[in-house]
């Protein structure tokens, strides 16, 4: 039987040495061994194969229920009327645009600190769906703004900081691709991934720091200013799109691992 690290593919020997060095360290009662265990691609794939369709279909069903309820089962807003129904897709898009970068930064940190071979793959896998959700947040927000504010776009603190986050995603994708093309070790995109987190508090507090067109915070840790009769479908779309995002990240990680494995196998066949 092949050893457990055979799936490291292109990471090959460094990954095996890394795993063996960790195997001798004991971390009683700590979450770190779980992370280290998951850093083994074979073990990760064993988990990811059933989790991908599960996250995907649960996400699709929850998001569809939330969208249906948001469109048909909630009352119109007393000021905005039916336009408020864009909320049920705009808020999850904004959440995932920001959470995507948060996840990318955590994975980048894990890669820099523990050199988890899968962490760099996870960070890269989150970049494209994160950028897509940031773009969808901007587009749906713009569509919401036209009938509500009378304009498609305003250089408002929240809108501008979200646009910057989208550009930072694009820069990360370009940087990660260029780094992979020139055979880099992934440290430069990882540092960029961590540096980009400075934007997250700016986006979060932009409506507090600058009182411009975008409305203030409606949902916080302690409660919400939205009426419960209008709020409940949002939990469906938030959880549904989050599970959908997780499924997309798993698919992209599986694709990256498969490609690395195929390349490593072809190299071994060519060398034999």
């Amino acid at each position: 039987m092949a050893p457990a690290y055979h799936n490291y593919g292109a990471w090959g020997e460094p990954a095996r040495l890394w795993l063996e060095s960790r195997a001798s360290i004991d971390y009683p009662g700590c979450a770190v061994p779980i992370l280290h265990a998951l850093a083994n691609p074979a073990r990760f794939l064993k988990l990811a194969r059933p989790l991908t369709p599960l996250c995907f279909w649960c996400g699709v069903v929850l998001a569809l229920i939330g969208c249906w309820a948001g469109l048909t089962r909630t009352p119109p807003d007393y000021l905005q009327g039916d336009t408020v129904r864009i909320l049920y897709i705009h808020v999850p898009a904004a959440w995932l645009g920001m959470a995507g970068w948060g996840g990318l930064a955590v994975a980048s940190f894990a890669y820099l600190v523990w050199r988890h071979p899968l962490a760099a793959i996870a960070a890269r896998a989150m970049a494209v769906p994160g950028a897509l959700f940031a773009a969808l947040c901007l587009v749906t927000g713009s569509i919401w703004g036209r009938p509500t504010w009378g304009t498609w776009w305003q250089w408002d603190g929240r809108l501008t900081s979200m646009l910057l986050l989208f550009f930072v995603y694009i820069a990360y994708i370009a940087l990660a691709r260029a780094d992979a093309d020139r055979g880099g070790d992934g440290r430069i995109p990882a540092v960029f991934g961590i540096a980009g987190t400075v934007l997250l508090p700016v986006i979060r507090y932009s409506v507090v720091w600058w009182h411009t067109l975008h409305q203030g915070q409606s949902i916080g840790l302690t409660g919400s200013t939205i009426a419960p009769s209008m709020l409940w479908p949002l939990w469906f779309t938030l959880s549904g799109f989050t599970l959908f995002f997780a499924a997309i990240v798993l698919m992209r990680m599986r694709a990256a691992l498969g490609l690395q494995k195929a390349e490593a196998r072809m190299r071994r066949m060519a060398a034999a």
Binding site: R85, I86, I89, H90, V128, L132, V139, I143
Partner: peptide, 19 residues
């Protein structure tokens, strides 16, 4: 408002299906 609502949901759906 409905053309805006339908347009926003359609763009979201296309984005999700695409990715």
């Amino acid at each position: 408002p409905w053309p805006f609502v339908v347009g926003a949901y359609a763009i979201m759906g296309i984005g999700m299906a695409g990715i």
